[in-house]
Design a protein around this nucleic acid. Sequence first.
DNA 1: CAGTGAGCGAGCTTCCGCTTGACTT
Length: 780
Amino acid sequence: MSKNLVIVESPAKAKTIEKFLGKEFEVKSSMGHIRDLVDKGLGIDFDNNYQPHYEISPDKKKIVSELKKAVKTADTVWLASDEDREGEAIAWHLAEELNLKKQNTKRIVFNEITKDAIIKAIKNPREINLDLVNAQQARRVLDRIVGFELSPVLWRKVRPSLSAGRVQSVAVRLIVEREREINNFKPEASYRVTAVFSSKDSNGKPIELKAELPQRFSTLEEAHAFLETCKSAQFSVDNIEQRPIKKSPAPPFTTSTLQQEASRKLGFSVSQTMMVAQRLYESGKITYMRTDSVNLSSLAINTAKAEIQNMAGEKYVKIRKFSTKSKGAQEAHEAIRPTYMNAHTVEGTAQEKRLYDLIWKRTIASQMADAELEKTNIYINISGSKYQFVATGEVIIFDGFLKVYLESTDDEQDTEASGILPSMKKGESLTYNEILAQERFSQRPPRYTEASLVRKMEELGIGRPSTYAPTISTIQNRNYVEKGDRPAVKRSYNELKLKGEKLSKAIKSENTGAEKSKLFPTDIGMVVNDFLIEHFPDIMDYNFTANVELEFDQIAEGKIKWNNSIDRFYKNFHPIVEDTLKHSERQVGERILGTDPKTGRQLSVKIGRYGPIAQIGTSEEEEKPIFASLRKTQSIESITLEEALELFKLPREIGDFEEKNMTVAVGRFGPYIRHDSKFYSIPKSEDPLEITAERAIEIIEEKREVDRNKLINTFGENGEIQVLNGRYGPYIAFEKNNYKIPKKIDATTLTEEQCREIIASQADTVGKKKKGYSRGKKKS
DNA sequence: CAGTGAGCGAGCTTCCGCTTGACTT
């Protein structure tokens, strides 16, 4: 029977700490918060100073009863939750719920999990800091008020089941505004001039030198005039400039930077990164993965140092202390790093290996010397011109941290790889091989990826390491935002070429603007965003969170009372909610595009019951309006009249087959042919406007052939049990559920009785829902 | 799997931050 009970937040942490503390201590975990505001209603007593109404979270009931049991046998309870606002509140909720007595309850904190740190913490216990707890209560109550008062406004004014909140609504705003910047973007053309010169080195060997004009010309005429002067000009080296530059390694990973780098270097989604990191953490290979700290423990720094010395030598070592720059960081943990720096690789899945490799390299590199480079600029005079060409080269003198790791950037543009330049002398004359003036266009801002959105949110202090991934899932589940691709479009550009005193002009084409796995706002996302900005500009302000955080800090310092702070907010906020419910119109995002040339009726787009639609005519007219759904890639905001008119070319009748007519239309899952109340998908490569009757019959026959092979057997009075051939092999279909057939059994010989046995044996496992890495219930 | 586009109006939806667990094709 142990005399001491230590409660931490995570079971993996509990396991580690138990090893350090010995038999006198039992270590258990609370699994995060054990209580929360009641689920029904707001859970706040507005007539009683905003008193929160808490209840034990359903999934924590078991844990709480286990903890209660453990408390009974302990002399002293040590509350060792994290050293931040949320951690303090967890300790307080535990003390309340477990009825802990002040005299035998101690609050301890440590932000690195080493034996020394924990022993030191045990020697320096304190009491629960109620000011800090109250700051958390204010945070919690504010989020509940915002979320649970705004969401119902959306249900009434836009669509049921929608949601709004301090964090998610601002995240959506970022994406909506970026999309509009892109829509309004007008690319500007300019002419970039590059040249290839030739010369001979000291041995008479021919060498090439690539150079560029630092200035760009804004018109074709100017570029043309410049090339004309180059035609007969003399080129000579004016000046050679050499200067050393240094590059420093990036700090160790936080949750946000890990998500960004895993996205850029490994192509992981934000939630994928977190799931893989969680497994590495649980198996003891890395430290905690939800952190905003870039700090490394002294133990970690020392072992990293030893690794670097071993691997590369003393001169590669440089001990660094990084400090956090991000807003609102609470730094309750270390940075994300390998638990054991000497483990260069780990066992596990391919994903685990790759993510670990990234973490190991980043951590090691952060304690390595700067890289030293030498940058060379060669300036080249052009006789009869004020301009100069510049050739740049970069040479690594000492690789330093680059030996193991280089951080990636989001915008990997056409930066010319500049390596070593040939050695040149001042005054040396050069002749050009070729000079090109190419029309270049300014780049529109990039759409957000999941990871770059996280970076932006962190920058604004919105959200926490534990919520980045769930928030990004939420805004996608609510259908405010979609992850998608856009193909590149062809764009033509002018090119002037000067070669052998001959100046020629050509029109070339390039592919541009391809996007993969980027975040696009949906129509509903835009409508909700505009509505919220119109009525609740304060909540939607990018600085709202930062401002309330300042207020929470004051509560934590005991300078103001949390209930007063909430009261000030609520007295301002609630009347706006009431007013909006009363006075605002229902939002459908309607846009009138013009008139239909055939009927002369109005053509408009709006959000309908089942998504965005185009509509010919209005409901006030006697003749009913005609509707057509928008395509997946189209949006209410950007669709043109011409594009909308195209939509009404479907459904179209294309002829008869077996005395039944065939219609082509586009449904939820793409274009299809309908015949005899059956559906036949049209392959992606074919245009539904071009499908002929002959081709449609072919598609129907093909599908029938597949279906013939699909059905193995049917049983039951109306054939309600079917044995079918599916993508993963044979299976049984019964009452809309599928049942797998054990591998040993030959599906073709199954009897009805055997089928019923299989169905009965799997009845309890079939039909249950899958859970992903997102909060709560998923909508289907 | 898919087609719709209206309002007799039941009863439901929803927030942010801490944590992990047990679902299978």
